[in-house]
Amino acid sequence: MTDTQRLAEALIRCPSVTPQDAGCQTLLAERLRALGFVCETIESGPDDFRVTNLWALRPAATPDAPVLVFAGHTDVVPTGPLEHWSSDPFTPTVRDGKLYGRGASDMKSSLAAMVVACEEFLRSHPEPALAIGFLLTSDEEGPARDGTVVVCDALRQRGQRLDWCIVGEPTSVQRTGDMIKNGRRGSLSGRLTVKGIQGHIAYPHLARNPIHLLAPALAELVATRWDEGNAHFPPTSWQVSNIHGGTGASNVIPGTVVVDFNFRFSTESTAENLQQRVHALLNKHGMREGQDYELTWTLGGQPFLTPAGTLLETVRAAVYEVTGTEPDVSTTGGTSDGRFIAKICSEVIELGPPNATIHQINEYVDLSDLHTLQRMYHLVLSKLSALALSSSTVHDKT
């Protein structure tokens, strides 16, 4: 059993369903303190949803050295029906070369690989030319109000410098390293309540059906081309997630219909512009805000993008060196905590194991992917440290 597997299994044993950390960060902090990291626990949120965050930093010998941060989350989604699992989700189990357990892929294996990569790197480079940080939360799978965003706000207020950040989200498709995320689309949700007049279905002239009122506008919303995307992002999409109207009786015209929808938007659109266009479309179809409808908005995150630069090119080179293949670079998929980190760090990428079984019953990661991922993280550390040393040497000579 490798050190990475051993640590991944220890993390899986912690039943850290959002927002519980269940001891994961304590375990990781013990390993990091032994390496010279200064560890700080930052708690946030109400008593019934208390979130645990860990900020750990191992300073470099020089105060102006660049800072590489490994980021991720210790929380996992609920297990679902236990009887559908082949083994207990919080008892790590190896079958046919795969490690099963909740969080095996999303993302306790990444955390284990990051820590072990640091341990091995610092054994051979006890005084690296860069500082190393860890930013961990137990509120990524939840509402994400008291997790990474809180730590980033605290770091901004302190003036903490972050140069590069690797988020361990499961980004790969078939094998570890075949896809890197260098950005994510923005997420904007809306809840639209269209108002009518409830009545007997046999007397429609005495009622006003809000579903009929909504239907033409809904058809146009579905058909609208919001933007064309660009070289880095696919076109913005609009999707209905829930729609509800009616009392449950077949002879009652409902008084309201409620539609939940979501935009996943590219950098070609802004949240403000999308909101304005939706309101204009509803008005076009004869609906007046406040009188005929109400619409509340929730901005889940702005889009972010890390263009070609030091971090992206270093990670691509490390992946190629370990696997012999060029990784795809993509911005597809859901949101991640990278959206918060990108506000205080100009270069943020995501690299983790395959995501085929994340959030599923019998979630697993291949044991071979644990070793591959640890080697990639180790190589990135080595390459960035060498770059930092080279830059520092040139600066000293000048």
Rank of each mutant, 00 (worst) to 15 (best):
V115P: 13
R184S: 05
G199V: 05
D292H: 10
I166V: 15
E350S: 00
R277A: 04
L384P: 07
V51R: 15
A56W: 02
I42D: 11
L155P: 02
I243Y: 03
D292E: 10
C39L: 01
L379C: 06
N262Y: 08
W55Y: 13
D369G: 01
E350I: 00
N251A: 08
I180R: 06
F340A: 06
L311N: 01
V258G: 14
V77G: 07
P303K: 05
E119A: 04
L162M: 14
I180K: 03
L57F: 06
R208F: 10
H285N: 07
P204D: 10
F340Y: 14
G334V: 09
G352V: 02
R208H: 08
S250Q: 14
G352S: 11
R184Q: 12
G147P: 02
I253M: 03
M376Q: 05
I358K: 05
D163P: 07
G309P: 04
S391E: 09
I166E: 07
R161G: 14
S330P: 01
C165H: 13
I42P: 08
Q374C: 07
K284F: 08
L111N: 09
T148A: 09
R102C: 12
G177L: 09
L111A: 03
F261D: 12
L27D: 06
T247D: 14
A10T: 10
Q360L: 01
G333D: 03
A280Q: 13
S269L: 02
G255W: 06
V149T: 15
A207D: 08
T314K: 07
G246A: 00
I12M: 02
N182I: 00
V76C: 14
G286A: 03
R339N: 11
G186H: 11
K108G: 00
A308C: 09
R31M: 06
N362Q: 03
R50P: 10
N355S: 14
I197K: 12
V69F: 15
T41Q: 15
R225K: 11
E127V: 09
P303V: 00
D64H: 14
L54C: 01
L192E: 06
M376T: 00
V51D: 06
F265C: 11
H200F: 10
D21A: 11
S382M: 13
M107G: 02
P170H: 05
S346T: 13
H212C: 03
L351H: 04
D366Q: 15
D396C: 09
